[in-house]
Simulated assay, not measured.
Amino acid sequence: MTGMAPTVRTLIVDDDFAVAAVHRGFLESLPDFSVVGEAHLGADALRAVEDLHPDLVLLDIYLPDISGLEVLHRLRARPGPPVDVIAITAARELDTVRSAMAGGVVNYLIKPFTLDVFTDRLNAYLAHRREVRRVAGRANSGALDQDSVDRLLRVRQNPQQARLPKGLSLRTLGLLSSALAEARTDLSAAELGERTGVSRISARRYLEYLVSAGLASVAPRYGAAGRPEHRYRWTGEPAPRSSP
């Protein structure tokens, strides 16, 4: 049962105290996670990992002393058990995302995002963590067979095979992803819905998921009436195919 399992000890790293407090509130709404500390500088984050031994670090990239990417590099170079890292940042440059992925982040969340998106990504991480523990528990003398390795790497090999939020389907995700990629420009949820025959509300849910997965970016555009409209652009490569 979920309630019997130990909580995931989480360290929040963000230079903005208010944003860190929001992330703490998000985490405290999830029973499988506990906050063991906060850090607002990269150097403090490294010390906190050594002192608090978290299972997971929510890591901002833009830090005032050293880059979050440098923090990630040093975490990977330290001896002892590895710590999982989810990047939570406004940084959306392709080189930054690639560097974070090369550094082994388990997910990349672009600010701002909703509680629903945050919850979906943390629950997906939790499911993967539990799968790792199940596979490790079945391994003889710590050795894994090929099937076990393949299961652990499946999400990295194809992010669209990750567990989707409730109500989303891989087929529709592939359809909308392909349409957004082929547009080669930014689209609103309504425009993408018109191109694919999906309702605006449904299109927006899928677009928010793509943003949370690091496959799309979102930016407001202000019209004549002054009301902002969210515009989405494909940032992943290559463009995904719709599932058969």
Results as ranks from 00 to 15, higher is better:
Y222S: 08
I88Y: 05
S202V: 12
V35A: 03
S243Y: 14
V85A: 01
A224H: 10
L176A: 02
R121G: 00
A181P: 14
S178Q: 15
T2P: 13
L122Y: 03
R98F: 03
R154Y: 00
P165R: 11
P240I: 00
D32N: 11
D116Q: 12
A143V: 14
L215R: 15
L58T: 12
L52T: 05
R163Y: 05
R151N: 02
K111Q: 01
D16N: 11
V8S: 02
T10H: 08
A179L: 06
L30A: 02
R9T: 01
R231E: 04
A21L: 05
R129D: 02
Y222W: 13
V218T: 14
A21G: 08
T114E: 02
H40P: 06
S67W: 12
V218L: 08
L41N: 12
L52K: 07
T89D: 00
R221V: 11
T196W: 10
G137D: 08
R9P: 04
H128V: 00
A139E: 10
Q161S: 09
L210E: 01
T172M: 06
A225D: 14
P6N: 04
Y62D: 12
L69Y: 12
L122H: 06
E208A: 01
A127T: 03
L144A: 03
R129T: 01
T235A: 10
D60E: 06
G142P: 14
L69A: 09
Y125F: 08
A189W: 11
E93W: 06
V13S: 02
R195T: 10
L94N: 11
A124C: 07
V117S: 06
S29F: 11
R241G: 06
L56I: 11
A181N: 13
L109M: 06
Y206H: 09
G167M: 07
P31Q: 09
S34P: 12
W234K: 10
L46R: 04
R130Y: 03
S148T: 10
D60Q: 07
A18W: 03
M4K: 15
V49I: 04
V155L: 02
G42S: 07
T10V: 00
I61G: 06
F118P: 03
A5G: 07
A162D: 11
